[in-house]
Design a protein around this nucleic acid. Structure first.
Lengths: 149, 149
DNA sequence: ATATTTGCAAAAGGTTTGCAAGACG
DNA sequence: CGTCTTGCAAACCTTTTGCAAATAT
């Protein structure tokens, strides 16, 4: 766990508990986004006594501190992953393996202005995510893709 | 309820029940997006015997038929609203009153190509929603906005 | 030492499923 | 009529809350 994370916790008056370390380590070491229960399962391997309540509470804290961020799932579930870029960014999620990649420049200021003009809304924020096949899965799927029904 | 909706149900082999009518009517008559429980509550006023299970099942059917569509909430909940434009479109949601307005041209093909080049992903779909203040709420909020903490 | 944090148990939502009774076509 | 649909109850899953015991600082 990086210094940045530790100091962010301390600066904001949170204690650095082994549970929080564990949750952060799991998220930091995964390239994919993880749901609370997935995180629970993985942390549990090293620390069987942990409760899933702690996972939820820790995720809340870490999200508040902007150390991790949420990915919205189509099914309404959330999952979390390490916040690597420091500023405004978005995710692209592989529909096959779940790998998440970030990108920074969303270039939708122009679109925002246009929509704002069209609708009269004063736009405050946007939710943007892409889904697709990552490079690896394109290759694999290309060989053995089941025909879409 | 419009002919289009009725025939869409029939064409796809679904029966036109009073419950389905009621759900569609409620959604059609609301400018806002409604959650399943909100729909349940409203339908219930006219049809107290309906069960919330029927709401969920009806929403699934109507979503499949593209008669209604989902709005993703920050909290992971879904809500539904009448699908007015026929093609690809997105929503802008008022953060104050919940009014939803559609827009069609999302102009992110260029962004998609760029992201695709950067990340190696083959992009399949995107999730895009805006949040902001609608015209009415801008006026109201301008007069009586509570300072953000 | 003390305020924070944890873990348990239980509650609270939201959503799904099994099944018998009922209704559309 | 036969099949699809409904409504109930109960199961399921995720998330939240109350509280006493444990712990980081």
């Amino acid at each position: 766990m990086s210094n940045r994370m530790i100091s962010s916790l301390k600066v904001h008056g949170y204690k650095l508990t082994p549970q929080r370390r564990a949750v952060l380590d799991i998220i930091a070491s995964s390239r994919d986004h993880l749901t609370p229960s997935e995180i629970f399962a993985r942390v549990r391997e090293h620390r069987p006594a942990i409760g899933i309540v702690t996972i939820y509470r820790t995720l809340d804290v870490l999200t508040d501190l902007d150390l991790i961020c949420r990915v919205h799932g189509e099914d309404g579930c959330h999952s979390y992953l390490m916040r690597r870029p420091s500023g405004h960014h978005h995710h692209i999620v592989c529909s096959n393996c779940g790998t998440v990649v970030d990108f920074m420049k969303c270039d939708i200021e122009a679109l925002e202005r246009k929509i704002s003009r069209q609708t009269g809304f004063k736009i405050q924020s946007h939710l943007l995510e892409f889904e697709g096949l990552c490079h690896r899965c394109q290759v694999v799927a290309g060989a053995a893709a089941p025909r879409p029904a």
